[in-house]
Computed example of a mutant assay.
Amino acid sequence: MSNENISITLTTDRKQKPDVEHLEFGKVFTDHMFVMDYSLDQGWHDARIIPYQPITIDPSAMIFHYGQTVFEGLKAYHSKDGKVLLFRPDRNMQRLNQSNDRLCIPEIDENLAISALKELVKVDSDWVPKAPGTSLYIRPFIISTEPSLGVHPAASYKFMIIMSPVGSYYKEGIHPIKISVESHYVRAVAGGTGQAKTAGNYASSLKAQEVAEESGYSQVLWLDGVERKYVEEVGSMNIFFKINGEIVTPELNGSILEGVTRNSILRLLKHWNIPAVERRISMDEVYQAYKAGVLEEVFGTGTAAVISPVGELFWNNEKLTVNGGKTGELSMKLYNTLTAIQLGSEPDPFGWVVEVEQEVTNK
């Protein structure tokens, strides 16, 4: 579908932009949103950009009762030369379809979705903040809308994209976080929905996250749901370990989300000829590396923070301090390089960055 097939209705009541110095994640939304509907007889249809507004949905809509929904998260950035840039939107739409398949949601046309995304960013390009470290967070998502209490894949859906300006994840510079290794609750198992980006995965993680925060830890590191020994991922990030010069990250096993940032970091490491492997790694192996003094760095990767260095792991009632609780050299290099590529201030040898036109003649 080309841009001409996306109808655009512009708002006549523009919102006041928030103070870029006090942006909160996902609290304020732009003037417009993208919506497209699905029905069995028409497929995906009526692609449109409209003023941001509430949606009307039947109380018996299946999303409320059976949680048939998927979502994505990516960002638009303002470069120093005034361009608006997206980072690997094709990977996000590919992953959205992978999640669709697992949740029995009809596949979307990825080119159509990227076209719609670019057009929406173009319409609201003045919402992309320009202050250092800020960006426009983009949330594509699909919900089931069929009014039915029968347990079966829905016959109707809505695909929407909303956007929110967000501040710098690290307001005072990049700082290591403290993570609690979860040994009681389980997030996902192979064969479940762990590799899909769906709401239920996050709902099931809230209890463990709440317990960790009460103990002073900002994130939870999940172990496998069967043996409770192999590292999987952090609540909102994939995880990497630097052990004796080698980078290790858990292999994708059917219960781990394939992060876009994770993939980008692996590509960067290969580009730099730094040894990196994807394999099973147990917490006992991590602990032994710590005791031997060769656990050099630990860091998480994700859209929100890009790189989150880990300064402490709490496991079996023991605090494992990593790199003296300071940000490691490799973590900082990865953060600086990837953010520079995203902002267009450093060469992009991978073709990851996509420019969005800003001129909107009918605005």
Rank of each mutant, 00 (worst) to 15 (best):
A340W: 06
R102T: 07
A208I: 06
N253Y: 02
T261Q: 08
V121K: 00
V286R: 01
E172I: 05
V260T: 15
L74H: 01
K83V: 03
I256K: 01
Q195K: 14
E359C: 04
F34Y: 08
L74V: 00
A61T: 10
N253A: 14
Q68V: 01
A47V: 00
Y157M: 10
D31Q: 08
K75A: 00
T69Q: 14
E182N: 08
E4F: 07
K207D: 04
D348S: 08
E21T: 15
L343S: 10
G302I: 05
W222T: 07
I142S: 01
F240Y: 14
N111K: 14
E227W: 07
E72L: 07
E296Y: 05
K178N: 14
K118V: 05
I8R: 14
N362P: 02
A196V: 01
S99G: 08
N92D: 01
S7G: 10
N92H: 12
S7P: 09
V211F: 10
K242N: 09
A203G: 14
G82M: 10
Q288S: 14
V151I: 15
H184G: 06
G325Q: 09
L23S: 01
L257K: 03
C104Y: 11
V277R: 14
P153F: 12
E251R: 15
E355N: 09
L334D: 01
N263E: 14
S205I: 06
T9E: 13
L221H: 04
L40H: 09
S2N: 14
T12H: 14
H22I: 08
G324H: 07
Q219T: 03
N273D: 15
M332K: 15
I57R: 09
N238P: 10
N201G: 02
D58P: 06
Q98S: 12
L10S: 12
F71Y: 13
F25G: 09
Q288F: 08
E233G: 04
I108K: 02
S255E: 15
E146N: 05
N273W: 06
I143W: 03
T56R: 12
M237N: 03
D126M: 05
L320P: 01
G328Q: 04
A190S: 14
F241V: 10
S308K: 09
S7W: 04
G43P: 03
P176K: 06
V234K: 07
T321V: 15
E24W: 13
M93S: 04
Q53M: 07
P140T: 06
I243S: 12
P59T: 12
H152F: 10
S205W: 07
G194V: 02
G259D: 05
Q98G: 09
F71L: 12
N336C: 06
L221P: 04
P250R: 11
I256G: 02
E210C: 11
I105K: 00
W352L: 10
Y335W: 12
P176H: 05
E21N: 15
V70M: 03
N3R: 12
G167W: 03
T56H: 12
F29E: 00
M163E: 04
G225Y: 04
G325P: 07
L268G: 08
M237D: 02
I63M: 15
F350P: 03
P250W: 10
T134G: 06
P59F: 13
G254S: 13
H152N: 11
N273K: 15
E233L: 08
A305N: 09
E346I: 09
E246M: 13
Q342A: 03
L221E: 07
V306G: 07
H175Y: 05
L268F: 11
D126R: 10
T327H: 05
